[in-house]
Design a protein around this nucleic acid. Sequence first.
DNA 1: CGGTATCCACGACGATACTG
DNA 2: CAGTATCGTCGTGGATACCG
Lengths: 99, 99
Amino acid sequence: MEVALAAISGRWATLVLRDLTHGPRSFSDLRAGLPTLSAKVLTERLDGLVAQGLVRCSRSPGFPVRTSYSLTSKGLLLRPLLEQLYRTGEALLDEVPDH
Amino acid sequence: MEVALAAISGRWATLVLRDLTHGPRSFSDLRAGLPTLSAKVLTERLDGLVAQGLVRCSRSPGFPVRTSYSLTSKGLLLRPLLEQLYRTGEALLDEVPDH
DNA sequence: CGGTATCCACGACGATACTG
DNA sequence: CAGTATCGTCGTGGATACCG
C-alpha cells in the first residue's frame, strides 16, 4: 500500500496521471487541464513521475520545442486505482454529511 | 477524485484507516501497528478523520481511560479504495524497475 | 493508558519574473 | 513552447518531554 501511495502522493501528481490516462499530453495541455497549477509545480511533479518510471517524456527537435508526456507500462498499472478513486469520491459525496 | 484523495490524504491517514478496516482499535493498538508514527501525528490524523466523519471514537469511563476507534458507515466506503491501493502496490513491485 | 506541548525540518504548493 | 529562478506559505511529520 505504501508503494501505491507513493505513486499518487500529492494531490497534483494524481491529477496529472489522470490526464495522461487519456493519452499523451504536452506541457501546455497539462497546464490547460489544471488551470490553478503553476508551471513550477507541474515541472516538479513531472520530474518526480519520470524519476519513478511512471511517465516518459519525448521532445521534438527544432524550435519552438514540443514535448509529449505519456504513461509508461508501469504508469498504466495505476489506472484501476485512479478509477477507484473516482468511484469512491462519488460514494463519499452521496453519503449524508456527518453520519 | 479530489474528494477521495482528501479522505486518504497523507501517508499516515491511509494506514490508520487500513488498520481500522480490521475492526475497532485503541490508541495503543494503532501505535503498535505503526511503530514509526509519533503520538502527536497519530492524534492529528485521528482528529482529522473524526472531523471528516470517517472515524468515531468512544471512551470508557474510569481510570485508566480506554479508547476505541472505529470506522463510520462513511469510513467503510473507503474499503474498496484501500484494497485497490494494496493491489496496485503489488503490481508496481512486480514490474521490472525502470521500464 | 491516552494523549498534549514545543520546537523544528522538509516537501508541496503558489506567485511572479525571466530564459533557451 | 517549455520550462527555470527566486521567494514565501502552509501542512505533514519527527523528537522529546510532560500531563490527567
